[in-house]
């Protein structure tokens, strides 16, 4: 009965308008070309690919049973080293990042030049991966936990500093103005005005980064950064698969424990 009203209307329906369709087709085409290009030029030996599942299973079979006897004398010290590396690295990063975040926060530092320098430090430290930093520091200080700790610290500066600066910029100006009005010194304004407001975010960022750093520091040893990674590297080079299995289990466990610990800290303290 109402069908006649719109009988003259074109009865076509397309999900997207023409420009949208062209854009999407172009995008899909681009993806397909990129994948084909990648697959054609990259060196994948088909035999290896077919073999991969079998080989991977073999690997785990070789790791079993795990050699627990190796834990006390080699893996436990490495585990402690990893935990200390992550913790010290985080502490150092927090100390440096606090200063840099003050440089970056525009409500504290009003100089654009200082802001920009701070921002550059944050971006530069963050975009180079901890593992690459570790390569640098191993070249400087020789292999060991010092290099790993510095790599963790430097790489974390960007992350911690960025979020800390945001937290400082989000601080409410009311209490700060009240303090300034009393004639308090700049340091007093920082400690009594900003710190109480920033503290929850500060603790959250630090614990969150510590969690990430535990994961990271467990692998830095592969390039000479000490800790569990070093133990893994040794076991791999010696083809002691039962020891490789042990280190992997320990890494897995410590990552899980760190995650649970940070979740607990976040819910109980913050």
């Amino acid at each position: 009965m109402t069908a006649e009203i719109s009988a003259g209307r074109p009865r076509q329906w397309q999900r997207f308008s023409l420009p949208e369709r062209i854009m999407r087709s172009a995008f899909y085409l681009l993806v397909v070309i990129a994948v084909i290009w990648s697959l054609r030029t990259i060196e994948i030996i088909p035999e290896f690919l077919y073999d991969a599942p079998q080989q991977t299973v073999d690997l785990f079979v070789r790791m079993w049973p795990i050699d627990w006897s190796w834990y006390p004398k080699v893996v436990h010290p490495a585990l402690m080293e990893t935990l200390h590396t992550a913790t010290l690295g985080t502490i150092l990063a927090v100390a440096v990042a606090s200063v840099v975040s003050l440089m970056v926060a525009r409500n504290i530092t009003r100089s654009i030049i200082v802001n920009t320098i701070g921002r550059f430090i944050l971006v530069a430290t963050r975009s180079v991966h901890a593992m690459v930093w570790a390569l640098f520091f191993v070249a400087l200080f020789g292999p060991g936990a010092l290099a790993g700790m510095l790599a963790i610290a430097v790489h974390s500066i960007g992350f911690i500093g960025k979020f800390l600066a945001e937290a400082i910029e989000d601080a409410k100006p009311g209490p700060i103005e009240a303090l300034v009005a009393t004639g308090a010194s700049p340091l007093a304004v920082l400690i009594k005005g900003y710190w109480p407001q920033v503290k929850p975010a500060f603790l959250a960022i630090a614990t969150f980064r510590w969690d990430i750093n535990v994961r990271e520091s467990a692998v830095l040893g592969l390039v000479g950064g000490g800790g569990l990674g070093m133990a893994l590297d040794t076991a791999l080079n010696n083809l002691y698969w039962d020891q490789v299995g042990l280190v992997l289990v320990v890494i897995f466990a410590v990552v899980i424990v760190a995650e649970i610990a940070t979740a607990w800290i976040r819910s109980s303290i913050l």
């Binding site: 109402t2 069908a3 009865r11």
Partner: peptide, 18 residues
């Protein structure tokens, strides 16, 4: 699709299809 348009007309939403 044609049927869907007819039904939309029938419920008074012919112009809202898209």
């Amino acid at each position: 699709i044609e049927h869907a348009f007819q039904l939309l007309d029938a419920v008074g939403l012919g112009d809202f299809a898209n």
